[in-house]
Design a protein around this nucleic acid. Structure first.
Length: 271
DNA sequence: CTAACCTCCTGTTCGC
DNA sequence: TGCGAACAGGAGGTTA
């Protein structure tokens, strides 16, 4: 479920509230994707210094140490003082002096991993190959252009891979390619400079707009206060197979790339 | 090195 | 309506 906008919306919804909190206890439900990497009680007494995001990872800086949180396909976080008792899909509770941070994740593709720092091999393996942050000044057009030139992958696969730019998941990949007028199956290296620039711009504008709308709630995504997002009402192609393109009226098509669905307009995306 | 495929797990939707 | 099959937003690991 969560792509970059959803993770960022989640981060913003409780970053202030958790800052400075002391960990009082930790409880865990069923196993997640990876083991925590330390005994839960080792976290007790540490202070939460702040909450950052890198790609689709949330990084909770502790004193000392670091928690990496990933929401996988179906994860969501809640933060509050009066959460209900943990349910069958609640797998991690970080109880602090300022509220409880809870990971809810039915499919359990998510993870909470402890590392001593970002240089810790555990963290470096997860964060080391991540590409540019699309919503930061570090999202260089020149680097993006040269990365596109170097890859012969279908452009949608390159975007999903996260090695060039992070945070563009399956929904937003279809959306940005539509805005840029690029066929998702096009080889990255063969896309012209004008469209590459349009793609670079579309990635920034679509993700920024999605953050502003509170993310996309297709099933049950919500921020840490339980609020749903609204970007799903703005999708131009995603989930619209057979429906008319908003620009030209041609029916939107669905295809499979790497066993994931891709939506596009065969008329507007010819390159 | 790159790229295609596999896998983890559960809830929902689809087709007969 | 019932039931199994197919599918779902991520992404690291394995294999070629």
């Amino acid at each position: 479920m969560p792509e970059l906008p959803e993770v960022e919306v989640t981060r913003r919804s409780f970053a202030q509230a958790i800052q400075g909190a002391q960990v009082e206890s930790v409880s865990m439900g069923k196993p997640l994707r990876w083991p925590l990497g330390c005994r839960p009680d080792e976290l007790v007494g540490r202070t939460v210094l702040g909450l950052r995001r890198r790609g689709k990872y949330l990084l909770a800086d502790l004193a000392p140490g670091l928690l990496l949180l990933h929401l996988g396909m179906s994860g969501s976080l809640r933060f509050g003082r009066d959460l209900p008792p943990a349910g069958v899909h609640d797998h991690f509770d970080l109880v602090t002096s300022q509220g409880t941070l809870r990971l809810h994740d039915p499919r359990r593709f998510g993870a909470v991993v402890y590392a001593q720092s970002e240089q810790d091999p555990v963290a470096a393996k997860l964060l080391g190959n991540l590409g540019m942050e699309p919503l930061s000044d570090a999202f260089s057009l020149a680097v993006f252009e040269s990365g596109m030139k170097r890859s012969r992958m279908p452009v949608k696969q390159l975007l999903l891979g996260g090695r060039l730019v992070v945070g563009v998941g399956n929904i937003y990949a279809s959306e940005v390619l539509f805005l840029a007028g690029i066929r998702p199956t096009a080889a990255s290296s063969r896309i012209g400079p004008t469209r590459v620039r349009k793609l670079h711009a579309a990635i920034q504008s679509v993700l920024a707009q999605a953050v502003a709308l509170g993310g996309t709630t297709l099933r049950d995504f919500s921020n840490a206060e339980g609020m749903a997002g609204h970007f799903q009402t703005q999708t131009r192609v995603y989930g619209r197979e057979g429906a008319p393109c908003y620009i030209c009226g041609t029916p939107i098509r669905l295809l499979r790339q790497g066993q994931r669905s891709t939506y596009f307009c065969p008329q507007c995306q010819r390159a």
